[in-house]
Design a protein around this nucleic acid. Structure first.
Length: 229
DNA sequence: GCGACAG
DNA sequence: ATCTTGTCGC
């Protein structure tokens, strides 16, 4: 999967575009104490034909109170292919981002950043496409190997692939499964870990992502109740 | 050849 | 991602 071959030229072209965008990726420390932190996520209808992308900007220094939010809807135009998730989700997320009135300082994305076979997961892709700092925080592994982190909150272990540290497996909550954290754009691993942990004081999933998740699910449900099926 | 495989 | 109720455990 590191360099998959596709019969469909659409997918080979996606690989090329991924490579071009990856050249623009910048790994550097995040601003020290971001206040405006956003979460980004998507939700699909039951047929997998339409989906919603949303951003929620919240105040990380005031209990994650919501400052701004935006949702966009789109018809699905790319299938789910492991390693090419960005081509499915970035377009609708970019449209939602344009609708925001408040620019977040950093965005947590429900996907991987550099923890990707070609070091350019959806969170990194979104960051480069929009020119904004992003952090990848996924619920499960795409690639790489790791040791189970210690049971205490805050414990983490590196996610390794080909002798490289792609990200970290972080315990955000004692007794719960760890999350997979990796840098997106204009971010490094230390910054990503610190932000993800700070944004998840109580639940496994960082609060900004939880808020984005509920936003897009609500958008889908109110649209779904008005459609046949 | 056989699994694995973000959302 | 989505289809779905109750249920077990800290």
């Amino acid at each position: 999967m590191k360099r998959p071959e596709y019969a469909n030229p659409k997918y080979s072209q996606a690989l090329e575009e991924q490579e071009r965008l990856r050249a623009l990726l910048r790994l550097e420390p995040l601003p020290e104490h971001p206040r405006l932190v956003a979460g980004a996520d998507c939700s699909f209808n039951r047929f997998g034909t339409t989906f919603w992308g949303g951003f929620v900007v919240c105040d990380a220094q005031a209990g994650f109170t919501v400052v701004d939010r935006a949702v966009a809807r789109m018809e699905v135009s790319f299938p789910y292919l492991p390693g090419l998730l960005a081509f499915r989700e970035v377009p609708v997320l970019a449209r939602a981002y344009e609708l925001l009135r408040t620019a977040p300082e950093v965005t947590l994305v429900d996907a991987h950043g550099t923890a990707h076979p070609r070091r350019f997961g959806s969170a990194a892709h979104l960051g480069v496409a929009l020119g904004i700092p992003t952090v990848g925080c996924a619920k499960s592994r795409l690639c790489g190997t790791f040791d189970e982190p210690a049971p205490a909150r805050g414990a983490w272990s590196p996610l390794m692939l080909d002798g490289e540290t792609l990200g970290a497996v972080l315990r955000t909550r004692a007794g719960a499964a760890p999350v997979f954290v990796s840098p997106g754009h204009r971010c490094d691993l230390a910054s990503a870990l610190l932000l993800a942990l700070r944004c998840a004081p109580r639940y496994r999933i960082p609060q900004p992502i939880r808020l984005a998740h509920e936003l897009v699910n609500e958008a889908r449900k109110e649209a779904g109740s008005g459609e046949e099926g």
